[in-house]
Computed example of a mutant assay.
Amino acid sequence: MPYNRVDVSMRELISACSGLEAADLVDRLARAAAAVANTSYAGFVRADPLREEARSMYAHTPPGDPLRVRSWLAESGVLKELASAVEPVRMAYDARVGEPGFLATPVPAVSCDHLYVWVAGRDFCDADEHLLSRYAIAAGRALEAASGLEAAVRLLRGVRAFRPA
């Protein structure tokens, strides 16, 4: 089979653009959010388009989840609050009643309506809220870029498939 410069370059381009795994990106974004907030807990929550329900999309917790943040998310009512929230949501840390301390802020991303990045595990202040809001902007841009690369890969595969031999 003769060397086909177009096939090689298209294959290389598709490979370069598809190197980003969405699940890996979300995991890395959550870990970075935890590091930025100086805690071990972080994740993402997505609300439905009608803002009636929210569900945990991803949660990064330390092994064993000592503060039981995963179950707290499901049982506390914070998901219901995030479903309708348009501003950051902050809840105080109170170990006596099982409140792990929580901060969530909207992620501005066109491809992910009503997405929130959250951190938990300590008391949070206004400075933490400001920092997490700035981080949410960067996370939104990263998610948008990943979405754009996925769309580009689909288009490139279509170009390659329909290119005359």
Score class of each variant (00 low, 15 high):
residue 36 V to G: 05
residue 71 S to L: 05
residue 52 E to C: 07
residue 47 A to Q: 06
residue 28 R to C: 08
residue 33 A to N: 07
residue 39 T to E: 00
residue 29 L to H: 05
residue 30 A to V: 12
residue 48 D to R: 02
residue 27 D to M: 07
residue 52 E to G: 15
residue 67 L to Y: 04
residue 38 N to R: 12
residue 47 A to M: 04
residue 50 L to E: 15
residue 74 A to E: 12
residue 66 P to V: 07
residue 58 Y to F: 15
residue 25 L to D: 02
residue 43 G to D: 01
residue 72 W to G: 02
residue 41 Y to V: 06
residue 57 M to N: 01
residue 47 A to T: 10
residue 34 A to T: 09
residue 24 D to V: 13
residue 57 M to F: 12
residue 72 W to Q: 06
residue 43 G to W: 03
residue 60 H to K: 14
residue 40 S to I: 01
residue 70 R to S: 10
residue 29 L to Y: 01
residue 24 D to C: 07
residue 49 P to Y: 06
residue 62 P to Q: 11
residue 71 S to C: 02
residue 61 T to P: 05
residue 53 E to K: 14
residue 42 A to I: 13
residue 45 V to K: 03
residue 44 F to H: 02
residue 73 L to K: 03
residue 69 V to H: 12
residue 36 V to S: 06
residue 57 M to Q: 11
residue 47 A to G: 15
residue 62 P to H: 04
residue 71 S to W: 04
residue 43 G to V: 06
residue 41 Y to M: 03
residue 44 F to G: 00
residue 73 L to F: 04
residue 25 L to P: 06
residue 24 D to L: 12
residue 61 T to H: 13
residue 43 G to E: 00
residue 39 T to M: 06
residue 31 R to H: 11
residue 46 R to F: 00
residue 37 A to D: 11
residue 65 D to A: 05
residue 66 P to E: 10
residue 69 V to K: 14
residue 38 N to T: 12
residue 52 E to Y: 08
residue 72 W to D: 03
residue 38 N to P: 00
residue 31 R to L: 10
residue 33 A to V: 11
residue 36 V to L: 09
residue 32 A to K: 05
residue 22 A to S: 05
residue 48 D to S: 10
residue 60 H to Q: 10
residue 53 E to T: 11
residue 53 E to F: 14
residue 33 A to I: 11
residue 42 A to E: 03
residue 70 R to N: 13
residue 24 D to P: 00
residue 46 R to A: 11
residue 56 S to N: 07
residue 23 A to C: 03
residue 44 F to N: 02
residue 39 T to P: 11
residue 32 A to W: 01
residue 40 S to N: 13
residue 59 A to S: 15
residue 65 D to P: 12
residue 27 D to P: 00
residue 39 T to L: 03
residue 51 R to C: 15
residue 66 P to L: 05
residue 38 N to H: 14
residue 40 S to Y: 09
residue 28 R to F: 05
residue 63 P to H: 04
residue 44 F to P: 01
residue 30 A to D: 01
residue 63 P to I: 08
residue 39 T to Q: 01
residue 47 A to I: 08
residue 25 L to A: 07
residue 48 D to E: 12
residue 74 A to L: 09
residue 58 Y to H: 13
residue 72 W to Y: 09
residue 60 H to E: 10
residue 33 A to C: 13
residue 68 R to E: 14
residue 34 A to E: 00
residue 46 R to G: 06
residue 35 A to Q: 09
residue 48 D to I: 07
residue 66 P to C: 04
residue 67 L to F: 11
residue 38 N to A: 14
residue 46 R to D: 01
residue 42 A to G: 14
residue 70 R to Q: 12
residue 74 A to I: 01
residue 35 A to V: 05
residue 39 T to W: 02
residue 41 Y to K: 10
residue 34 A to F: 08
residue 52 E to R: 03
residue 35 A to Y: 02
residue 56 S to G: 06
residue 57 M to T: 04
residue 62 P to W: 02
residue 53 E to P: 04
residue 34 A to S: 14
residue 31 R to W: 10
residue 29 L to G: 08
residue 66 P to F: 04
residue 42 A to N: 10
residue 58 Y to D: 00
residue 22 A to H: 14
residue 49 P to G: 05
residue 46 R to W: 06
residue 36 V to F: 05
residue 46 R to Q: 15
